[in-house]
């Protein structure tokens, strides 16, 4: 056994974690290795020295201070209500975006079959076509109006 391996096993031994399979090998090595015997003594000395690190008793009112600082716990049902509340606007927003994208794509496909306009003309044509194809009241029409006129 190498001394480096013996050192690692000594660390396990001091924690009582050295298994029976490796213990005899370590013991045999220690019998013949004064250097590892010294290392083993040093490890024990250090373990004992750690007991010198002292701690102080917690304040008597620690528990009371903790309990006074606790906010109300949210129950599972409350958390789900919150999640549902946060998610509620999403379907409507997603529908509006999907509708706008669909209209834009459809318009693109129609436009591409006939001419190849410049970018600006293409964009305004797409908006105009999309807008005219929608009922005035629809979400899609409101979205297009927002995109085309909202900045004006």
């Amino acid at each position: 056994m190498q001394c480096a391996t013996a050192h690692k096993l000594l660390s396990l031994r001091i924690d009582g974690e050295l298994d029976d399979r490796r213990a005899p090998d370590l013991a045999a090595h220690l019998r013949d290795c004064p250097s590892c015997q010294a290392f083993a003594r040093e490890l024990e000395r250090c373990a004992a020295a750690l007991d010198a690190v002292s701690v102080s008793e917690p304040s008597a009112d620690f528990g009371a201070r903790v309990m006074a600082s606790l906010p109300p716990q949210q129950s599972t049902s409350e958390r789900w209500t919150l999640v549902r509340g946060l998610l509620r606007p999403l379907p409507m927003a997603a529908a509006v975006v999907a509708l706008a994208l669909g209209i834009t794509l459809a318009s693109l496909m129609n436009g591409n079959t006939t001419t190849t306009p410049t970018a600006e003309a293409f964009e305004s044509d797409v908006y105009a076509e999309s807008f005219s194809a929608l009922p005035e009241d629809s979400s899609g029409a409101r979205y297009i109006a927002l995109v085309t006129d909202g900045g004006n």
Partner: peptide
């Protein structure tokens, strides 16, 4: 900080060692 709790070994060690 000051420390209040010591083990028997801790008490045996000098302040410098601690």
């Amino acid at each position: 900080p000051t420390s209040d709790i010591e083990s028997p070994v801790g008490r045996a060690l000098s302040h410098e060692t601690r």
